[in-house]
Design a protein around this nucleic acid. Structure first.
Lengths: 136, 136
DNA sequence: TATGGATTGCTATGATCAACAACAATCGCT
DNA sequence: AGCGATTGTTGTTGATCATAGCAATCCATA
């Protein structure tokens, strides 16, 4: 079947993103994590006491949609909230959260290196800069 | 805020795909099209009389989910079905479907060239081959 | 030619996800 | 003191996708 779509970079971009995301999802699923969960944990590891709003801004997730996300992580005992002032609350990893984050990071690091390994050597170093130009 | 995520190619891949997809969606919305719709029309333009199943396989869309998709396009008068045998039916663009497909292709071509233009020249030619390696 | 496995189109359903509007409480600047 | 902006939240909606199941039809082979 003749298919003109793969010659479009934008189309290949979407297909590649879907394929790799499915792969990573499966791997993170092994430790009961989703990609968003892992993103939040990684961000929290580097930025203790950030606010839910700030997290959402960084990840492009609306405030309202952060609520169930954070609730799940809190119920799982991975993050804790501490009041900053009357309306803001700081988020931080619990001890268990830190352990889970470490596991997630191992999985992600392996995933990312395998991803890069699939790219032919002559194109490899160009991938990240090219992608950055498309959304940063 | 310190953010280790953008240094991961896989993460940037997802973000870039989301950003560009949102852009294209907005542009196609101007003619009442969605990305899937346009994909189907483009594919149909090059492959008249293909079957719904074959289309779904090519686009990685399950048979069951093709039904409402094709129904919308048929109700809009963009595609027509002709029986091939007792159980299969060939899909093809109507005259109106061909016109809409042409409009969509103009939009997509412009979108894709603007997308490539955003990539620094030294990385540009590496993007498509790199992406291809990730899903083909 | 009969038959069993695969294929096609479809219905129905559930899960997940993101967008949106609205709200009360609080903050911070003037 | 007052006012606009921010925060966390609720509730709802629409879109997308996976899954299971089903009847009809096909195709290859015994």
């Amino acid at each position: 079947m003749r298919d003109p779509l793969p010659s479009y970079p934008g189309y290949s971009l979407r297909r590649a993103a879907n394929a790799t995301a499915a792969d990573l999802s499966a791997r993170l699923g092994a430790i009961g994590m989703k990609q968003v969960d892992a993103s939040i944990l990684l961000l929290l590891a580097d930025n203790p006491e950030v606010t839910a709003s700030a997290l959402g801004r960084q990840l492009d997730i609306q405030r309202a949609n952060m609520v169930p996300l954070l609730k799940r992580l809190e119920d799982a005992g991975l993050i804790a909230r501490t009041p900053i002032d009357g309306k803001s609350q700081g988020l931080a990893l619990t001890e268990e959260g830190r352990e889970t984050m470490t596991k997630a990071r191992v999985i992600i690091d392996r995933f990312e290196s395998e991803l890069l390994a699939r790219v032919p050597a002559e194109h490899r170093d160009h991938l990240l800069p090219a992608l950055d130009a498309l959304w940063r």
